[in-house]
């Protein structure tokens, strides 16, 4: 669960409203590289992360992104306060105003609504961590772009803070990736999904999953019957690659019998 603290992670206090600038900055709320997507990305990915360091990092960074979303919303809110209809028209804010008045609604700067397609939760920690490192860089670039659009120190100060956090998160995800790669099964040369294939092997070894194992065996026998070329059989990924790369076939290609000294 989560609890709320009645404070921002870093102060936001903007003296001069600027609806045109708010329209650009709102992208870091609901845009493709925004804080909402970042938070949902990490908090969705953590359930299939197999290592405790990774789970903690995804949980804490995902939580911090919620605090960043709140800072972005505070910036947009303060930039759009006390607007007159004339200011709304002059600052090009009419398209947003007509649907949302001065409320916060997650959209990209160009008006595209927030979408879960902005992030991926792939169930492979190596894939997910590469996605996360790329996402932190994309968010950093977006903050760079925002910094070029304004010289208001009240806006630049919190935006620079948020930009720096992207760098720190990139660093932490890089370390997490190293930890995950260090722990790969030494036989898993090609870094196949350690979350899924590991789970499958564990399920096969477990007493309480006998049924699963028997069903699996039946399936494999069926496959053997209709496909005499046993070298094509699919097993867990790291087994498959030994077949594909001809290093050490699990089944004898001529007799179809399992090799005793396999690995």
């Amino acid at each position: 669960m989560w609890t709320y603290e009645k404070k921002l992670q870093y102060p936001v206090k903007i003296a001069c409203p600027n609806p045109a600038l708010a329209k650009a900055i709102i992208s870091q709320f609901g845009g493709p590289d925004g804080e909402l997507a970042a938070s949902m990305r990490y908090l969705s990915q953590r359930y299939t992360m197999p290592y405790k360091e990774g789970i903690a990092t995804l949980t804490d960074v995902g939580t911090e992104e919620l605090a960043h979303m709140e800072m972005i919303c505070a910036i947009v809110h303060q930039l759009t306060r006390d607007m007159t209809p004339e200011e709304i028209k002059r600052h090009g804010f009419a398209e947003y105003y007509v649907d949302h008045t001065a409320a916060l609604w997650p959209q990209a700067a160009g008006g595209t609504p927030f979408s879960a397609t902005f992030f991926q939760s792939k169930g492979d920690p190596i894939t997910d961590l590469h996605e996360n490192m790329a996402a932190e860089q994309k968010a950093r670039t977006t903050y760079d772009n925002i910094i070029r659009l304004t010289d208001d120190p009240d806006v630049l100060d919190p935006i620079r803070f948020l930009r720096e956090r992207e760098l720190v998160h990139f660093q932490r995800f890089g370390e997490t990736l190293r930890i995950v790669q260090d722990r790969l099964d030494s036989k898993n040369y090609y870094a196949f999904n350690p979350a899924f294939d590991y789970g499958k092997r564990r399920a096969e070894a477990s007493e309480c999953r006998k049924e699963y194992r028997q069903d699996n065996q039946k399936e494999q026998n069926k496959e053997k019957e209709c496909r005499p070329d046993h070298q094509m059989q699919m097993h867990s990924c790291d087994q498959t690659h030994t077949l594909y790369f001809g290093r050490n076939a699990a089944y004898d290609g001529n007799t179809g019998k399992p090799l005793r000294n396999y690995r």
Binding site: Y10, P11, E64
Partner: peptide
């Protein structure tokens, strides 16, 4: 409040470091 934010930030940042 800024003092709370400063110390709170230090704990947030160090916690992330300790995770890895």
């Amino acid at each position: 409040l800024y003092r709370v934010q400063q110390f709170g930030f230090m704990t947030d940042d160090i916690r992330l470091f300790l995770n890895t």
